[in-house]
Structures are given as structure tokens and as C-alpha cells.
């Protein structure tokens, strides 16, 4: 049976769930427990990665450097990773400092059709002798053929693997298996998958990815992540064990990790919020949920209408500013309809 590399994004994607408010103690405690459970790679940072603390996505409580330092102190065998999106982070401002601070694995990400924006960043990480993965986000928005093309670009830049991200949780297991199979056949490097749970499919999709040949699964303990959350890492590990895959993770200790998240991290995913189901159906980035709820309240419109309209406009991750524009538009339409009725 194959080995599966588990990537733990709890301290990165989970930051979306706390509006990027994870504190030093939470990061330290979690990292120490992940180290004890022999989790191979632990990613830490703002939900959108390096340099993403912003009004657009949310300002983080800690700086990137503070988060990296807190995790670094508590990791030994487990490797320290960061996520970054060109357009938010740059090499000079962010990536070089992260690597100086002891980051060993970098996940350079782009929208699923824009892999060429990661060329310099992947190249830089490899130059520094570190591990670089290419992540393709929002994969439901591109054809299988296009995904192959973009994955091969990342491979040519020197990526050690490519991870497909179902950022809206829009896929069903068959969709995942089809894409993963295509990429595994086309590429010479390991292929991975990162799920979201908007339609309750995160674990099933992750397992479908493994069965189709993915050798990297990116998950979060308790599914602690943006919107509906991610694939629950402890369940994925348990199911993989049951199926005979090896992850190298200690089952009891990863279950302890689950208690840490429950007891110490502020806002644990409490099942799938109904608004996140709409986000998955509309194919809109999971991380938008909290912003959509806030803006919907301010402008007196239905958050579900906002999500479907955002989906129609094909917004991508990072376009949170469109939420306000859409809400103002919907509020205008609503007002006009009411005036018409009065007349």
C-alpha cells in the first residue's frame, strides 16, 4: 500500500475560522502536540498565507514572523511550512524573511489558471534548498485539460509536488477522482488534494483522491478551516489506516490533537453552517462566509443571494472586495422593487 504525506493546515486554514486571531499560546501548544503526533508538515500563518493580513481578507492578530517563530520553537521532526499567494506576498517583503526564520516547506499558490505567477517564487524556494509545492486553488473553475497544463508549468518551475485545492468545496468524489487521475498520469511529481466541507464531502473527497493516486492530503484537525472547514485530519488518518495506507502519524496522539483544538482554539467548526452550503453550491471561495454575513447584515440583503451572485460573477479567492459591491447592487435592486410595489 502507498504512503500518504499528510499536510496539516490547521494553523493556516483554521485562522480563517478565527478571523485570523490565533494567538501565540494557541500556535505554540498546537505545534508541540502536532510534533508529538509525528505530523509530517505543519503549516502556520494567516488564512491566505504570507503577506495576506489586510482589510481585504482580515487583519491577523500576530505578524507572519510571530506566527512562524511560535511554531518554529515547538517543531523538530515535523517540518514547518508556510502558504503564500503571489499578488499578496512578495519574495523581498515576505518569503525571504520566512525562510530566514526557519521555514522548510513553502506552498506557492495561484488561482487554478494562473500557475505562471508562481514561477519566481517556486524558483526562489528551490534556490534556497527548501521544499516547494505548487498549489492550484478553486479547481472547480477550470477544465481537466487546463489543470494538467497548469500543473506541468509548476513542475517545470521545479515544484516538488502539486496540490489541487477544492477551495469552494464544490466537488463530489467522482469529480476529484477524475482530476487526480488525469494529473497523476500527466505529471512526474507527487499530486495532492486539499478539500473543503461545504457539501459534506471533504473526507470522502480526500479518500477518493488517495484512491485515484494522490500521495499528499492536506487536512485540518477538527476540519478547523475557512467557511465549512476542511477534511478532518484525524478522520482522514483513521480511514487511511483502516484502508491500509501508511501516514506515519500516531493515531492516539492525533486524536489528542483533536481535543486540543476543541479545548483551546476559540471557534471550532460546529458542523457546516447553512450559508457554507450555499458557498459550495455557488462555487465561491469558502473563506468569504464571514465577510458575506457581515456585509449582508449591514446592507439588509440575503447572504445567500450575495453568494449566488458572486458565483455568477465568477469571483476568485482574494476578491473579497466584490462582496460589498454585490451587496450594494442587491440592496439597490431591492429598494427599487419595493418602491415599484408602493406605486
Amino acid at each position: 500500500m502507498n504512503d500518504i504525506l499528510i499536510i496539516d493546515s490547521t494553523l493556516r486554514d483554521g485562522n480563517h475560522a478565527t478571523r485570523h486571531q490565533l494567538n501565540k499560546e494557541q500556535i505554540s501548544n498546537y505545534a508541540a502536540a502536532a510534533e508529538a503526533a509525528a505530523v509530517p508538515v505543519v503549516i502556520v500563518g494567516h488564512g491566505n498565507g504570507l503577506g495576506a493580513s489586510s482589510l481585504q481578507v482580515g487583519e491577523a492578530l500576530l505578524s507572519d514572523q510571530e506566527m512562524i517563530a511560535a511554531a518554529r520553537e515547538n517543531l523538530g521532526n515535523s517540518k514547518l511550512g508556510v502558504f503564500m499567494i503571489p499578488g499578496f506576498a512578495t519574495i523581498n517583503k515576505d518569503l525571504s524573511r520566512a525562510i530566514e526564520a526557519g521555514v522548510e516547506v513553502v506552498f506557492a499558490s495561484s488561482h487554478c489558471t494562473e500557475a505562471d505567477t508562481t514561477q519566481r517564487h517556486i524558483g526562489y524556494v528551490k534556490e534556497k534548498g527548501k521544499t516547494a509545492y505548487g498549489n492550484l486553488m478553486m479547481i472547480h473553475m477550470a477544465s481537466k485539460e487546463r489543470l494538467i497544463e497548469e500543473c506541468l508549468k509548476m513542475q517545470s518551475y521545479g515544484a516538488d509536488g502539486v496540490i489541487l485545492m477544492d477551495s469552494s468545496g464544490a466537488f463530489l468524489p467522482n469529480d476529484v477522482a477524475e482530476r487526480i487521475t488525469a494529473l497523476v498520469n500527466a505529471a512526474d511529481i507527487p499530486i495532492g488534494f486539499h478539500a473543503h466541507n461545504n457539501l459534506g464531502m471533504a473526507v470522502a473527497n480526500s479518500i477518493a483522491a488517495a484512491e485515484a493516486g494522490a500521495t499528499i492530503l492536506d487536512c485540518c484537525v477538527r476540519g478547523f478551516g475557512a467557511g465549512a472547514g476542511n477534511a478532518m485530519l484525524e478522520i482522514v488518518v483513521a480511514v487511511l489506516n483502516k484502508m491500509g495506507y501508511r501516514t506515519g502519524i500516531d493515531l492516539y496522539k492525533v486524536l489528542d490533537l483533536s481535543d486540543i483544538v476543541k479545548n483551546e482554539l476559540a471557534e471550532v467548526a460546529k458542523g457546516v453552517d447553512p450559508i457554507c452550503i450555499v458557498s459550495g453550491l455557488a462555487g465561491v471561495f469558502s473563506g468569504f462566509a464571514k465577510h458575506v454575513e457581515r456585509v449582508a447584515m449591514q446592507y439588509g440583503v440575503d447572504p445567500r443571494d450575495i453568494f449566488f451572485e458572486l458565483g455568477r460573477r465568477k469571483v476568485v479567492a482574494g476578491q473579497e472586495d466584490m462582496i460589498v459591491e454585490v451587496a450594494i447592487d442587491l440592496a439597490d435592486k431591492k429598494r427599487k422593487a419595493e418602491q415599484k410595489q408602493l406605486r
Binding site: Q56, F88, H111, T113, M141, K314, V315, V316
Partner: peptide, 14 residues
């Protein structure tokens, strides 16, 4: 200050 750039591939183009 902070600057962010987003590339959106939607068709028809935004």
C-alpha cells in the same frame, strides 16, 4: 500601505 493584485480568468473578461 498595502497592495494586492488579483488575476481573474473569467470569460467574458472582467
Amino acid at each position: 500601505f498595502k497592495t494586492i493584485l488579483i488575476l481573474n480568468p473569467a470569460e467574458p473578461c472582467i
